[in-house]
Amino acid sequence: MQFGIFTVGDVTTDPTTGRTPTEHERIKNTVAIALKAEEVGLDVFATGEHHNPPFVPSSPTTLLGHIAARTENLVLSTSTTLITTNDPVKIAEDYATLQHLADGRVDLMMGRGNTGPVYPWFGQDIRQGIPLAIENYALLHKLWREDVVDWEGKFRTALQGFTSTPRPLDDVPPFVWHGSIRSPEIAEQAAYYGDGFFANHIFWPKQHTEKMVGLYRRRYAHYGHGTPEQAIVGLGGQVFMRRNSQDAVREFRPYFDNAPVYGHGPSLEDFSRETPLTVGSPQQVIERTLSFRDYVGDYQRQLFLIDHAGLPLKTVLEQLDILGEEVVPVLRKEFASLRPAGVPETAPLHPAVRKNTDGHHDTGTDGHHHTGAQVRNQEV
């Protein structure tokens, strides 16, 4: 199973000191956090994509390209690549280039974004969010698998005899996740292509996550990619840890109360009870994370959000030490012992990465997990 972290890249005032980091500091600190993730033995670092304050990751491939040059093992991913407002041609080019630079250590997560004004900034209409996501990904999927593409759709200029360059590394496209908080259409899209489905798993109760993942698993099997249990599932999560749970709650409370995403809303206790947010001891995080399997089944990737809401770099690095030393080793062992034979251990890796790892999982020649019909190369 893959464990890692994802960042939303917010620039937030530390409520305990009143200090706001500069954009330069936040970007540099994000790199330091990624390097620390590799140092402590995590598998994945993922960044969001935002084009509005108070966020800084407007150019994920630039950030990840720099991190690729300074790491050896991390899988570099996104926690959102805006499939709605980015041109699919540019996504195809940018992430294929990144894939070459990182020697295959790249996958990405498609998402629609949750900031309304971004759509008109890039010439789109938020009311068309789902159709944009479906059509744009159909084109991206085609661009990475066909050398010469003819295309006509509703939302962009037609293509005739177009070749996206560079081609994917060794003709194996990056593995794609489709991320969603609440849209069953996105779970359906992931299932249709045999791609991964990433449930944000941060803001909603477990019953909602269970429903979304269950839909994806059933439809994955319906399209002939394998059994429901073999579908590729990822989960988000939020944690804050100290050796003593009371210390964790006391330290994290001002950050929670003032966070730009959920601050000034439910109490920390209510939010922790109703969502997967876990603030406490390492053992509490282990137990809570293991409980996710009870309602989503065996899954392949767990990403934690640990660097938001104004938390200082020193604190984030301490959180990574705890994750790497005390939490993830136990989770790896426990999840592995519970996983039935035939269920993939991790998300698919590029062949160039697989040959340098100890993990073993069933992948097709295009780097995707296949046990039934091949992924259809056509529009949803």
Rank of each mutant, 00 (worst) to 15 (best):
G129Q: 14
T157G: 07
G123V: 03
F155R: 01
W121D: 14
L139A: 07
R112E: 01
L139T: 03
D94P: 03
E93D: 13
E146V: 15
G129T: 11
T115F: 14
D125N: 13
Q124E: 09
G123K: 06
W144M: 05
G123R: 04
Y119R: 02
E93G: 07
T97W: 01
V149Y: 07
Q160T: 15
F122Y: 15
G113Y: 08
H100R: 06
L143K: 09
W151I: 08
M109E: 06
Y119P: 01
L159E: 06
T115K: 07
F122C: 05
I126S: 12
I134A: 11
I126V: 14
R167E: 01
W144I: 08
V118D: 13
G153I: 04
L140V: 09
L98Y: 03
F162S: 11
A96C: 14
Q99R: 06
G161Y: 07
G129L: 11
N136K: 10
I91F: 02
A102T: 06
R112L: 09
V149K: 09
G111S: 06
L159N: 09
R105E: 07
L108S: 03
D103A: 13
R127Q: 14
D94V: 05
Q99E: 13
W151Q: 07
L108V: 09
T165H: 07
R112I: 08
Y119N: 01
I126K: 07
K142Q: 13
R167L: 10
G116P: 14
D103F: 05
Q124R: 14
Q124G: 04
F155K: 01
R105Q: 07
R105S: 00
L143I: 10
E152V: 14
T97V: 12
A158D: 11
I91Q: 01
I134M: 12
I126H: 08
G153R: 02
L139C: 08
I130A: 09
A133H: 06
D103V: 08
V118R: 02
T115Q: 13
D107E: 12
L101I: 13
Q99K: 05
N114Q: 11
T115G: 03
L159Q: 06
A96T: 15
D103Q: 14
W121P: 00
D125H: 10
V148I: 15
L132H: 02
G111L: 03
G123Q: 08
V148P: 08
P120A: 10
G123H: 03
A133S: 13
D107R: 14
E93F: 04
N114A: 15
V118P: 00
A158K: 15
G116H: 11
R145D: 06
P166W: 04
L98G: 01
N114D: 15
A138L: 03
T157H: 14
G116N: 13
G153P: 06
K154W: 01
F155D: 00
P168F: 00
M109G: 08
F155N: 01
D150A: 09
W151F: 15
W151H: 15
A158M: 09
D147I: 09
Q128A: 12
G161L: 07
P117H: 10
P120T: 07
E93M: 10
D150G: 12
G104H: 04
A96F: 00
V106I: 12
L98W: 00
Q128V: 03
T157P: 04
A102Q: 04
H141V: 02
T165N: 10
D147M: 09
